[in-house]
Amino acid sequence: MLLNNVGEHIYLPGDVINSKIQTVCDGETVRLGPGLSKHNTDVTVSKAGSLCFGPPNTFWIDCHQKRYIPCKGENVIGVISGKQGDYYKVDIGSSDQALLNFLSFEGASKRNRPNLSPGDVVFGKLAIANKHMEPEMTCVDVNGKANGMGLVDDKYGILFQTSLNLARKLLSPDCILLPELGSRLAFEVIVGLNGKIALFCKSSAQTITLMKLINESEYLSNEQMLDVLKGMFL
């Protein structure tokens, strides 16, 4: 259940939403997500956008944003920008560069180091994200397996930057764009929550067309996307 979508539910920074929360979850403990904070007894909005509700008790503000703010556990795409001691420096689009340890790759050991150079693209998970520290990435899961993460071979693809909103929208199960495209065309795509998208198709022309399509889909509804797809693939 989403509480958004209508003009009357737009909130501006500073608005107090106690009464709204009480009508949905009265007397229960609630969780406040991005864009909401608690001041004394008031819940205030800090970003402009629509209020969303995720059962059982989570509230957040859905807001259009381009700048990535690291958050623990999110999957991101980054570009290696250099080496520092036992770490790679990775540009993930946030204010600080992320650190990526040589050992946080599948099968890596002190002897067997991964060989990455500046400009390489990696897909990983944020293991540490804290406002006081540099974020730290890892390319293995808890079992030490790559699980799809690691170096992204970008020789035949393209890496481009979109708004965070679009990245979240593409990853949401409600959005039909990527599954519908997949049923019509063979391609590979990696969407990072930091708004970076890596796209691989059979030919450059297809890659460019798909990139344009993804960028344009930001303000399209599911029905409009279907119309566009029907126009493209007959």
Binding site: L12, S46, K47, G49, H64
Partner: peptide, 11 residues
């Protein structure tokens, strides 16, 4: 500032 999604106390 609002368009950039920066956290603010008020506008």
């Amino acid at each position: 500032l609002q368009d950039a999604g920066i956290s603010m106390k008020f506008m």
